Every structure is written in C-alpha cells, then in structure tokens.
Simulated assay, not measured.
Amino acid sequence: MAELVVKRYATALFDVATTENKVKQYEEEVADILKALRDTPDFVAVLHNQKVTLEEKVALVEKVFSNQVDGPIVGLLVLLVKKNRQRFLVQVLEAFLEMVKKQAGIIKATVTSAVQLTESQVDTIKVKLEASTNSKIELETIIDTSIIAGLIIRVGDKVVDASIRGKMQTLKKQLSELRLA
C-alpha cells in the first residue's frame, strides 16, 4: 500500500513538472525541500504530532514553503498533510527525484567494499558500469568490513557479489547440498 501511495503522488508531481516543462526547476526545489526536512527533524515531528491540528499543519507547510517553491509542489505537500499521509512525504519526494533521474537516463548504483576505495578505483568502476549499461551512472560507495574483501555492485535490481563473504556463502551452500554416497 505504501509503495502505491508513494508512486501515485510522485508520478502526479512528475506529470505536472513535465507538462509545465519545469522538470529541472522542480528537481532543484524538491532537492532543497528534502535537505531542509533532513536538516530540521523538528519540522517533520510537528507534522506527525497528533496534538497539532490539521489546519495548523497545513498553515505551517504553506508558510514555510509558499515563497520557496512552485505552487504545485506546495499543493502536493499540503495534499499529503490533508490526507494524513505526511509520513510518506520524504519517500514521495525521493521517488520524484528518481523519476527525474530515470528520464535523464541516470541509473543509481552502489559499490560495497571492505575498505575505502581510491578515487581512481571508483572512477574505473563507474566508467565500466556506464559502458556496460549504456547509461550515466550515479555511484554511491559503501564500506562494509563484513564482506571481508572484494566488491558487491548493485545496479538497479541486479547484484554482482564478488566478495569473499559471498564466495564463502556460495561454497557453504554447495557443500551442504553435496551428498556423499
């Protein structure tokens, strides 16, 4: 249900941005809103507080964002509050940004390694991923010492596990399935 709600609102905002030819503007404004929401957790807490009335929440959203972002974005924020769906606010805005990236041919990828990768290693991985996907890659690096060594690369819903932990798990599975006569 939550995924459907998020997708519906994000798609509506994306459709408005596309129709009005303001995708880039909306992308920047939504990114600014997300940064503001992350930087001020008290604001989000007020939106979730049951003691604050719906009218007060709507007035707060309008006061904070009306002069900062385009009308349809404020309208979306107000609608989420009025429908008591403010808990999806961040997810909706993030989903909108993902739609913008997808339209621009940008794919998000993550590389998990046991140690910090050098800038040169990250650049090499990015170039190879862009060549293999024929898309622009937005690469995020994660350090996870539990993989022991190697890399885990995620591009969309595809995963390449070239970690020692992954190889050990595969070997363990193969050994457990091995039947001795």
Rank of each mutant, 00 (worst) to 15 (best):
R85D: 01
K83F: 05
Q25I: 11
V16N: 02
E177A: 15
V122K: 03
Q68N: 14
I147C: 08
L89V: 07
N21R: 07
K57P: 07
S176H: 09
A12M: 11
L129M: 08
G75T: 06
K128Q: 15
K35E: 14
V160E: 10
A59P: 10
V90K: 01
F88Y: 14
F88L: 00
V69E: 06
V92M: 01
V30C: 02
T145Y: 04
I125M: 07
V52F: 08
Y9R: 00
D42G: 06
V44L: 07
K82R: 15
D39C: 03
Q116A: 03
L54N: 15
I142Y: 13
G71H: 15
Q169S: 12
M168I: 14
S113M: 06
N84E: 12
A114D: 07
D42H: 09
V111T: 03
A12Q: 03
D123R: 02
V100F: 02
A181W: 13
K167W: 12
S135M: 12
R8D: 07
Q50N: 13
I153A: 08
K51R: 10
K51D: 11
V30I: 11
K82F: 09
L93E: 01
G156V: 07
L77K: 05
Q50D: 11
D32L: 12
G75Y: 05
K24P: 10
L93K: 00
V64A: 09
E28L: 04
A10M: 09
E27I: 11
E3Y: 10
K128V: 10
A10W: 04
G71E: 14
A104L: 03
K158W: 11
L139N: 00
T112M: 04
L151W: 13
T133P: 00
T112E: 10
I33E: 02
G75V: 09
E94A: 02
L54S: 15
V159N: 08
L89S: 08
K126A: 07
L129R: 00
A95E: 01
S66A: 04
S113Q: 05
K83G: 03
E138V: 08
S113N: 04
S176I: 02
V61N: 00
A31M: 08
I33H: 07
M99V: 05
F96H: 00
M168T: 13
Q68C: 08
I164H: 01
M168K: 14
R154P: 03
L151H: 08
K83S: 09
T19G: 05
T170F: 12
S176Y: 12
T110L: 08
L77E: 06
K57G: 12
A45N: 10
D32H: 12
R154A: 05
R87S: 10
V58A: 10
K158I: 09
L79Y: 10
V16M: 08
E130W: 12
D123M: 08
G156L: 01
P72V: 09
V127P: 06
A104V: 01
E138A: 05
T19V: 09
A59N: 14
A2Y: 02
